[in-house]
Design a protein around this nucleic acid. Sequence first.
DNA 1: GGTAGCTACTTTGCATCGCAAGGTAGCCTA
DNA 2: TAGGCTACCTTGCGATGCAAAGTAGCTACC
Lengths: 113, 113
Amino acid sequence: MSLRSQLLKGVLEGCILSIIDQQPTYGYELSIRLQEFGLSDVSEGSIYPLLLRLQKEKLIEGTMQKSELGPKRKYYHLTAHGKESLKEFMIQWENIKRPVEKILQKGGETNEL
Amino acid sequence: MSLRSQLLKGVLEGCILSIIDQQPTYGYELSIRLQEFGLSDVSEGSIYPLLLRLQKEKLIEGTMQKSELGPKRKYYHLTAHGKESLKEFMIQWENIKRPVEKILQKGGETNEL
DNA sequence: GGTAGCTACTTTGCATCGCAAGGTAGCCTA
DNA sequence: TAGGCTACCTTGCGATGCAAAGTAGCTACC
């Protein structure tokens, strides 16, 4: 398993909750949206199991809707529980990101000396 | 396992490499340094296995040195391989952090509307 | 000399999540 | 009818943080 996979642990969930929060969407499109944001190569093999888990945990709800082309799409939206979870994620992300940035910055400075 | 533990996967390694890069240090003190940077409650149960793994992978080297009080300390410094690994980590961290910030920012904006 | 308290290191099994890769199936067009 | 595309699903694996118990050295005090 690569470093990137490790770094995405826990993070992917927050990103997906956030994207769904912006606008209800379906699994296939989530991959596209993540790519647009700069998170490339997040495969369906990551997204669908995660979506089903979030649904099981009642953070999101899905409804099947007809598609213009191809099969039906499962549109997801956040539940109240999901919105809370997203808030908690943002807090935890900040609590991790901030010290990490400090640590890496100091390291960078050292290298520049 | 908590969200914080998940978010630390992969991240802890980079932080520890960076702190050691700044100045050689020993296991026990790493916990203190992490705390100073704002990463509290990272226990020895996380740090020591990680140090031994990094040593096994030849990213760091350790030397036992006398301590003013208490038992000897195992001081670690980065190897050339470790410095490369740290650089790679910083790249990967940026490649993850940037899109995540974008995604979370959009989500925040939505909430503020 | 022995003991308590502190420093310092070690170990092991568990829980969790990203993901590869194969699968099913609906819809449109030629 | 079949091919190609869209869309969803499943399963087992690999890797890492960590709790919690452990060992042991050193100092200071009685």
